[in-house]
Design a protein around this nucleic acid. Sequence first.
RNA 1: GCUGGUGUAGCCCAAUCGGCAGAGGCAGCCGACUUAAAAUCGGCCCAGUGGGGGUUCGAAUCCCUCCACCAGCACCA
Length: 851
Amino acid sequence: MSSDRYPFRTIEAKWQGIWEERRQFRVTEDTSRPKFYCLEMFPYPSGRIHMGHVRVYAIGDLLARYKWMRGYNVLHPMGWDAFGLPAENAAIEHGVHPAIWTHENIDNMRAQLKKMGISYDWDREIATCDPSYYKWEQLIFIKMLERGLAYRRRSTVNWCPSCHTVLANEQVEDGRCWRCDSEVTPTEVDGWFFKITAYADELLAWCDRLPGWPERVMTMQRNWIGRSEGAEFDLPVVGRPGLGIRVFTTRPDTVFGMTYAVLAPEHSLVDRLVEHEGEREAVAAFRAEVARESEIERLAADRPKRGLRLGARAVNPFNGAEIPLFIADYVLMGYGTGAIMAVPGEDQRDWDFARAHDLQIVETVKRPDGWIGEAYTGDGVKINSGFLDGLTISEAKRRAIDWLVEHGLGDAKVNYRLRDWGISRQRYWGAPIPVLYCDACGMVPEAEENLPVVLPPDVQLSGTGGSPLADVAGFVNARCPKCGGRARRETDTMDTFVESSWYFLRYCSPQHEAGMVDGAAAEYWMPVDQYIGGIEHAVLHLLYARFYTKVLRDLGLVKVDEPFTALLSQGMVIKDGAKMSKSKGNVVDPDELIRTFGADTARLFSLFAAPPEKDLDWNDHGVEGASRFLNRVWRFVLAHLDELPAPAAAGGPSGATPRPAPAAAGGPSGGRLAPPTSTDQSRAFRRKIHETIVRVTDDMEHDFHFNTAISAVMELVNELHAFEATARDGVPTAERVALLREAVETTLLLLGPFCPHMGEELWAQLGHAESLFRRPWPVPDPEALRRQEVTVVVQVDGRVRGRLVVDVNAAEDRVRQLALGDDKVRPWVAARTVEKVVVVPNRLVNIVTRA
RNA sequence: GCUGGUGUAGCCCAAUCGGCAGAGGCAGCCGACUUAAAAUCGGCCCAGUGGGGGUUCGAAUCCCUCCACCAGCACCA
């Protein structure tokens, strides 16, 4: 631990105060400047920030401050994803009301974030548990209801026995609750759904039109949507006119290979197909067996396919053949129609099942010569397929569908893996669903003028299941907005992912009272230019937010098709090889870190230790290194304050003729003359300064590799020390101090967005009255970057044997001659024959020889 | 099982179009300063790029193959 650190506590508090006092990061729409909407995923107010928060907010602030310096009008807001289970669980455990618990946590976390010195526009802060916030999503709910985009149905849902609530498919991971890890159980309940499937095609199509998103997130979303094209048609049941089994297939070309058909065990038709009591019992036993083992067996690969043959038989409508019917565990009720035609010749699962049950296998695609295998899924010509014989698979698919349409038996059909989004939660701490059930009128939406439907504050939370709101008589008993008669309120609340599906929109006009969003504000700020958050939301939040935005667009509230132009998915913060967690005891407390090293160090290390998309391996020694670096910069600047020329008057007389700096508006000297460079050492140093600008700018603009940007600045600081130590002899004083000043100011400008407090303080110490973040980002001087000479490596047969210093763009012939004549090189060539000489201009020469 | 990603020094990580394997940091070692230590400053050591094969004058980079780890999906008809 160092003993004399720069006074980070003082200066961090000082600048946080000044920024606040100047309202420096409060923004309004300004059409004269380009806008940049920089957003980090808002946190759940759990009570304390953790290192993952530090990392994501450091990234966001870096980009926001950088964009300020590039002249953008930057919207950078923060708020709270304030509804959710932990508040309710805290209430059950400790008897504190969720609202109180939540607001206390928000206060704590806001204070922590402020200590990090992040450039938020705090005037735009929102909390989703505020009725003035969720009022608008209740209104949207009603509009979705009117359009059939919100609907109620009974369904089998994922029930988390620990959270006592329903989970959406996306919220189940490996059969377990995403939040508490309990095993979910299928349960039948009535609930509300958002019709996200209506947007499946558009959501999928836009996956190809968002180049600013990481490919892997898009892949995950594509897989999740799981579009597949095929056909749907009925298989008549033998001897049961009017009874058909609807099947879905992606391979309508294989219909002539259908040798049996399978229904999911829980398929509703099964009860009507059973022919006698004995079979009914067998079906019940089979269903019980499947239900019992499914959870465990789901995770086992290649488990045997279990099935039960029914007495009933079906007809293949294409050739009139009677085929056996089964119920089997490998067919799922939740996908397609819950029933399939089985084609063992061209489907491995059907092949496995057919083998186990001794069923016929018909090949309908010609196998390539010498092909060995079981089911064949490759390309080929149709065989054994009646009118499809001789066609390719894709032709046959089309013809088979045409045939189905002509005969009125079926049609082309697109199926999705994506299910509608179940949003009902049987919990208290969420936005009430604004509908009522009237004895006379049935289900009725709440009237718009009665919104918001506010959560009643007085509620008993026992945690024993069922919707807590159902026990609050004052809430449940209401008037029907239609007939004025008695009605009962819906007691489910909305999934908290609904709030996070539009908070970015509310930030555009957080106080707007006439609607969800002010149209002009949304038009100016949306879409979010850079969104930053954890990969864990790749399909949950990000897919919901995309869907909801499209709904809002179709309701006329926004004009954008997509909410987030670019996404940065940052990696986790790891320590000792594992994700930080209390149980592993590897947690680093941001508060303590900031107390010990300061916010700038915490931020710098978060950005330096790894590129943002990778996991960050936390290392206490590494933090000390970051701190050491900042101290080094601090000491250098303070030690040279007296010596450095004042900001306004510099450039100074010297041997060289001063030139106007080309980047008059953007350079660190701000209109001052470029420092003269009369010596090789000066030129090399100034080149280093401007090369650093190029490298850091590149990292900021292109690949977000902030770690290499920081190392470039570290290099410059190292050079700065070296130059300072040696330039007293040989470089004229005025020139030396002018260069030092340019180097120091450049360093501070480049480093400012990473470590804003120290940047501002040293900037002010240098005599600047204006904030560092009101200064333009430095622009490299092409004159300084120009090289006279380059070092060219000389290889003999690929091994480095010498080096040449030659003029830039020296003629190839000349370089070749110099290389062959070089003293270091000659011995390696002398006894051999030169076969070929490869010259790569300004880089290397490779002399290829043979004995 | 499928898909994607990663694999470079003791550790975290760099390396433009295929062109000197090393920028930065950590750790370690040596030295300077110091009564001493801390801090600071200067210097040094360390891998041939997961394994194998190929293309090329030249491969961390391109191709093939295998391995390890991570993530997502996993009977989706």
